[in-house]
Simulated scan of single mutants.
Amino acid sequence: MTSPVVWQHAFKTATQAAQLGGLQVTDALTSAPSVPSGPYWLMEANSSRGNLTEMGTDINEENGSIWLHLLAVRGTGTLPALELVKAMSDTFRKAQRGDYGPLPEGLVYYTQNDDPADGNQDGNRVRFSLSFDYQYRDKLAPAIP
């Protein structure tokens, strides 16, 4: 399960990057039924594992990925889409460096992966995806009596 702290930081960072290009980031669970006429970003997150670093400790270690999908309009050209993907990548790299203030305690982004566009995709959109792998460590919440 992705921690709320990780989701909130990633969504805020992605929104900063998207706004530089005049775009919006949508949350798959709160997206309006209408689709923007131009390109837009969709954010997803997954946790590859969340476990105690050692049994009996109160530290939880979570590893996962933040996925950002640029849904570009077919026919608008590859270069504008690549510029938007590069801006998103740069924003996350700057966030890791601390350019926008400190990361939440225990959060580290450490690898970026790219899933290139496939011109054989159906429909009027082409998907460009990138992901940022992360690790997040926090203390377990107190037991509920």
Rank of each mutant, 00 (worst) to 15 (best):
T2L: 10
T2V: 15
S3Q: 14
P4H: 08
V5C: 03
W7F: 14
H9I: 06
A10V: 15
A10T: 15
A10N: 13
F11H: 13
A14P: 04
T15G: 09
A17C: 10
A18Q: 10
L20A: 14
L23T: 01
L23D: 00
Q24L: 15
V25E: 09
V25A: 03
V25I: 07
V25H: 09
T26I: 15
D27I: 02
D27E: 11
A28M: 12
A28S: 13
T30P: 05
T30C: 07
S31M: 10
S31E: 10
S31Q: 13
P33E: 04
P36W: 00
L42F: 04
M43N: 03
E44R: 13
A45D: 04
N46K: 09
G50C: 08
L52F: 07
T53C: 03
E54T: 11
E54I: 09
E61M: 08
E62S: 15
N63R: 12
S65T: 14
S65Y: 10
W67P: 00
L70K: 01
L70I: 11
L71H: 12
L71T: 02
V73S: 03
G75E: 05
T76P: 02
T76K: 09
L79Y: 02
E83N: 11
T91K: 06
D99I: 04
G101H: 05
P102L: 12
P102I: 05
L103R: 06
L107G: 03
L107M: 05
L107Y: 06
Y110L: 01
Y110D: 15
N113R: 15
D115C: 12
A117K: 12
G119L: 13
D122E: 14
N124F: 12
N124C: 10
R125C: 03
V126R: 06
V126A: 00
F128S: 01
L130N: 08
S131T: 14
S131F: 12
F132E: 11
F132T: 03
D133W: 07
D133M: 11
Y134N: 00
Q135T: 15
Q135K: 08
Y136V: 01
Y136C: 01
D138Y: 14
K139N: 10
P142N: 09
I144F: 08
P145Q: 06
